[in-house]
Design a binder for these strands. Sequence first.
RNA 1: CGGGGUGUAGCGUAGCCCGGUAUCGCGCCACAUUUGGGAUGUGGAGGUCGUAGGUUCGAAUCCUGCCACCCCGACCA
Length: 493
Amino acid sequence: MSKGLPKRSEDYSLWYNELVKRADLAENSPVRGCMVIKPYGYSIWEKMQAELDRMFKETGHTNAYFPLFIPKSYLSKEASHVEGFAKECAVVTHYRLKNSDDGRGVIVDPEAKLEEELIVRPTSETVIWSTYKNWIQSYRDLPLLVNQWANVVRWEMRTRLFLRTAEFLWQEGHTAHASKEEAIEETVQMMNVYATFAENFMALPVVRGIKSANERFAGAEDTYCIEALMQDGKALQAGTSHFLGQNFAKAFDVKFATKEGGLEYVWGTSWGASTRLMGALIMAHSDDNGLVLPPKLAPIQVVIVPIYKGDEELERISVKAKEIMASLRAKGISVQFDNRDTHKPGWKFAEYELKGVPLRIAMGPRDLENNTVEIARRDTLTKESVNLSEISIDKYVSDLLEEIQRNIFQKAFEFRENMTTEADTWQEFEDLLENKGGFVSAHWDGTTETEERIKELTKATIRCIPIDRKEESGSCILTGKPSTGRVLFARAY
RNA sequence: CGGGGUGUAGCGUAGCCCGGUAUCGCGCCACAUUUGGGAUGUGGAGGUCGUAGGUUCGAAUCCUGCCACCCCGACCA
């Protein structure tokens, strides 16, 4: 383990890449564009999964699993859907290998060509809707509220750990409804679930909004999203929820008998959040010393580091440490007592800071004597000595963890507020994007042409049309044409 | 996929222009002294120099193909 992380101010993306590796979150794999998620990183993902899964169940969804492979013909049944994904699909063409003639390895057996090629799912709408056709006959079968946890593959050119990998893990919810209103309600509900999760668990403030036509999911009528801002001023889409209209129902002929005896196409939604959330989590809070994790997602919330000379002293400290550990655990706090003799305390301090453990409790002979412990916060990097006879440690720690959770959110929130700026002239707009970054709130004439032109000129895209934006007449930042409200622009991941 | 760069021990590197089998630091192993912010000393292990060819008496070094990674463009959760 070498010392020192690159500085964010000097090279943000180098800092990110190094942090992901050094903090043991993930590493590159032998397969291009794919990553190995290491145990520590995966623990964080598991915590995210657990909470999201709970929220999905709470809103009436159940989990199921659909196949990894999609027949090629399925993908092309919904026109804009294929168009959106065709360029990044992995295709299975054969089902067998054989020994090569020179005996030096195996080759694809040309005899074993698949009659219909299979696509490795880039998303599952098509298989799922082809299945829903059989599941749905009547209004009594609706709504159908299904989620799946899965991996998907999108053959990306440029990849980055967690932010954009060829294979990634995610969940995709797919629901079917009897009415348009209900489907839209579902879409909005799931966007809100994501927003609540991001804010309450990831301590990540997000903007809820609707995507412009340009940024919309391939095959959707409307895409709702949550957008977050990273410390380098770039935006990151943290979750999306799509109102699919009747597009997939029509493509896969999914109709239901209405109460009134009619036959109608069902209304669909789909929504997803991926391991990209890990990237958002890392980039939103961490600093030059390493990861900063919100307590609610930290695999280890508290680490106890003993400081001692000799076995006898370690023994005495251990007794006390184990007492504390037991009382914290009783309160549902995850604690680790690091009594390894192979590393010195200073080394451990640096290590746990790198890994973002929210609280560190250090105990040495002096503490033993005074009945104190030293408590260090990861978020503020401050330390204090507390007297165990004056406080109850479990309450003290759990309050502090809550305080850290709040503080991390607050810091990110203030950052975003400071980094969201209104622009009313083109010059201001360009200047903000170039020199300040963050969200730029500006008027837009609503056309795709203008959006694309702005993207060409500034590399900024419309992140979303905020749900809660106020009606305000103005004129488009580029064309000067009339507009009824501001949208958020930013350069994005 | 286009333009640029890099690839040498687990990690980071020197050597490459000017061919002669590889430098240094971290890490690793052993022992000793250490332990309140990444300890110190001594000894030791570890490399077909990304890969496949070519040139040469001889290639980390020169040439060609391929692969991977990084930066910049086009695409995306």
